[in-house]
Design a protein around this nucleic acid. Structure first.
Lengths: 342, 342
DNA sequence: GCCTTCCTCTAAACCGGTTCAGTTGGATCG
DNA sequence: CGATCCAACTGAACCGGTTTAGAGGAAGGC
């Protein structure tokens, strides 16, 4: 029995052709007679040959892997189930493509840039996902300069050569505010996320615009870093003032849940004394008490769309922006008419 | 100016030696005169040469990457911050090693096996982390047969050729029960995790043993899949019986938080009418109300230890088991003496 | 009937490292 | 002083694919 390692040379010999032709047949290149191609593929299957990824990588200068670099404080990251779901979505596409995901979790932006550079220098990945977009995001020119294909999660504010796969933040916030206004709330506050991040500031702007549209005065807004710790502090500050808001719109679910805890602790009943809305519809939101009215974003779908777009970009050199259905407001138990609107 | 790509050949020519010697110098092999080595390294830095990972991969048959395959239902995964933290810990070690993490998230066990096989077939990784150990885990013989170095997260029940990096589950559960017993609880129930998973059944056994040690009758135990949905259902069933428990020990924090929600919903006060303990000490637990008494497991430290051990195993061909400090009980507001112990 | 064209296929170079057999020259030894 | 040994180094093979220049032969055009 033939025990030697099956390489392209073995297949070629067995099929009575040259290595090159086997390569051509395998990659569906023109210039191979149909009959010959069939024979080659036949021999290949018989021998159980799988082309070596490493050899291929070396000669084609590709890695058949995609990269995702997450720059976040580990605390914020751990309490944010977004990424896990997003990644599950990405994987569901990659698996059938014979590609893998290289994940990097780094603590800060300096490391992030270094990571991108070394990912490229080592040729670890053929393309990357860009999340947590910032204002004038420096990663966009960086990746553009490095020549690495990328997809942005959300539409960047400046020019970008990369396709954007976006879910519009605004309608969800707008709907949240409208819902609260309809319930009779007039004093609505916003616990905003990090305004250096685009989705942080967009949610904040959407909040302000929604209040204006409702003819209400400007609402109180507290900026945070999206962490539960900050969310908790912000809520405490809002609720311990003289005339606390009757409703708070949180920029993400973890902060809303932290806010819920603070309210409980202060003896403020939710939703009777205070209405609360979140953003993301993470699993926890359904199970806390009262269950959270929040905005549902479908991160797995987002992951799938982002992966599909990135693959298309790498394949065709270009890909269109994708706008996913806007996140929908899910009304649960944390919102109700205020006992005393004014 | 020299614009050609810097390869080992360029460095060799520039330094006036052969390619082979450059390789030797780079890899600290004996047989290179100190002076020559210095000159070669000097030239290399001047030219900014970085050996090509791809070429290296091909000739050394290594990939300089580690793999982590997570087989979980996306829902359970998303609400479990454990992995994100664990991964952050792993990364903190890998970064300085020039290695990367290849992550796979798969929906079920069948896919999991396929993923390991293709990771090996493609030579994507040089070693893997094995989490969520099951009874007689089939992955252990599989990986052993495939010849892929691995580290198990926790000690497997059968024979294993791989080093285990473990945090003992039992003391945390034991301490939880002891704490409840000291408070005066007698009717303590357990919402257990999936008993097909080792940590699920170990926590369950620790719970039973702790009750025995306290001289209490067997406690009610409900098995779940670790999801919030199951945790919520289990809690509802426990609390709506004739003589509900006065305390519930949950096998993880997400379920404990879901349980807290159910108690609230049923008008059962925590901790006055019902004490609750969790496991993992995820960020959420500190911020719900009342904050959760739970067991703190330090997943980032675990990740670092696992990565270090796996690297040592790959380097030396062998590595010792590591026992991390047992998880500690963190007492917060969700536990208190029962109003009526019997 | 000869030249051109097209299709199929081969041989060899190439990607950029590692590794190993073997050469060289100086030091050591009897 | 010749044999021996060793450290330092070279050249070429090798990892396993892809790619390109060009060979060979059949078909088509004039």
């Amino acid at each position: 029995m033939n025990r030697e390692k099956v390489t392209i040379a073995v297949v070629a010999k067995q099929a009575g052709v040259s290595k090159g032709l086997v390569s051509f047949a395998l990659n569906d290149r023109p210039g191979v007679a149909a009959e010959t191609r069939a024979r080659i593929l036949q021999v290949a299957t018989e021998l159980g040959w799988k082309p070596s990824l490493r050899a291929r990588s070396l000669s084609t200068q590709r890695s058949f892997a995609l990269g995702f670099v997450i720059a976040r404080n580990p605390d914020v990251l751990a309490s944010d189930p977004f990424f896990t779901s997003f990644i599950a979505g990405v994987e569901s596409i990659l698996t059938d493509q014979g590609r893998t995901l290289v994940l990097s979790v780094v603590p800060d932006e300096a490391r992030e840039v270094k990571t991108y550079r070394s990912l490229v220098a080592d040729g670890r990945v053929d393309g990357v996902f860009l999340s947590d977009l910032r204002h004038n995001d420096p990663r966009i020119p960086l990746l553009s300069e490095l020549g690495l294909p990328a997809v942005t999660l959300g539409r960047p504010d400046g020019d970008s050569p990369f396709p954007a796969v976006s879910v519009d933040d605004s309608p969800g916030i707008t709907a949240s505010v409208a819902h609260l206004v309809t319930l009779g709330h007039r004093r609505i506050a916003h616990v905003a996320g990090n305004s250096a991040l685009l989705h942080g500031s967009r949610r904040r702007e959407a909040f302000a615009a929604a209040l204006r549209d409702a003819g209400l005065p400007e609402g109180q807004t507290v900026e945070t870093d999206f962490s539960m710790a900050d969310g908790s502090d912000a809520t405490r500050r809002l609720l311990t003032q003289d005339r606390p808001p009757t409703a708070i719109v949180f920029a993400n679910d973890p902060m809303a849940i932290a806010g819920l805890g603070v309210a409980h602790e202060l003896g403020i009943r939710v939703p009777e004394d205070l209405s609360i809305t979140g953003y993301d519809d993470i699993d926890f939101s359904r199970y806390v008490y009262p269950p959270l009215t929040t905005v549902s974003a479908a991160p797995m779908v987002w992951g799938r769309a982002a992966a599909t777009t990135l693959l298309a970009l790498m394949e065709n050199g270009t890909a269109d922006d994708v706008d996913l259905p806007a996140a929908r407001l899910v009304i649960r138990g944390s919102t109700a008419p205020p006992l005393n609107p004014w």
